[in-house]
Amino acid sequence: MLELFTKIIKTGNRTEPLGEAGNQIEVLGGKLQNAIRQKFRGSLAIREVDAGSCNGCELEIIAMNNCYYDLDRFGVHFVPSPRFADMLLVTGPVTRNMETALKMTYEATPGPKLVVAVGDCAANCGVFGKDNYAIAGAVSDIIPVDVIVHGCPPSPTDMIRGVLAAIEGSGSPG
């Protein structure tokens, strides 16, 4: 046990101030009243849905929670069910085999709700393309999307900026 505490003290606090966003965030906006967005400030529960990604975006989403980025400090946390989520974070081109599951997850999320599409595949099907028998479409072809974060995969900083942009309702969150 002593070694464990020594390691904690030696490691110290590694959390960094949030970096600047690259030019990767696209706010589709206008759908939700700012008043509703205000309600999510301070506490936001996210359900992550992989609609068919290659798992690259998932690795970076997991990284949002590491001690450097510490997503929790913004009051944002991941939850295991859409039933008590405020936001869906969706990755991947939506495959034919995931189309129904994504729609059901969206419907199971209580309103008002936000959707952030993460990664080039979620935005426009990426390397897999729309003209593909196995792909149902980009995320916005299947469910309404509020913010798109581009990148393959996007950096954790861009993803956090994207999540905050969805809550704040503007492209430049504080």
């Binding site: 068919g52 991947g92 034919r96 390397v127 897999f128 393309g129 593909n132 028998y133 196995a134």
Partner: peptide, 11 residues
């Protein structure tokens, strides 16, 4: 399984 099938071999 099969939910993440993206037609990769066809592409």
């Amino acid at each position: 399984l099969g939910y993440a099938h993206k037609g990769i071999e066809k592409i």
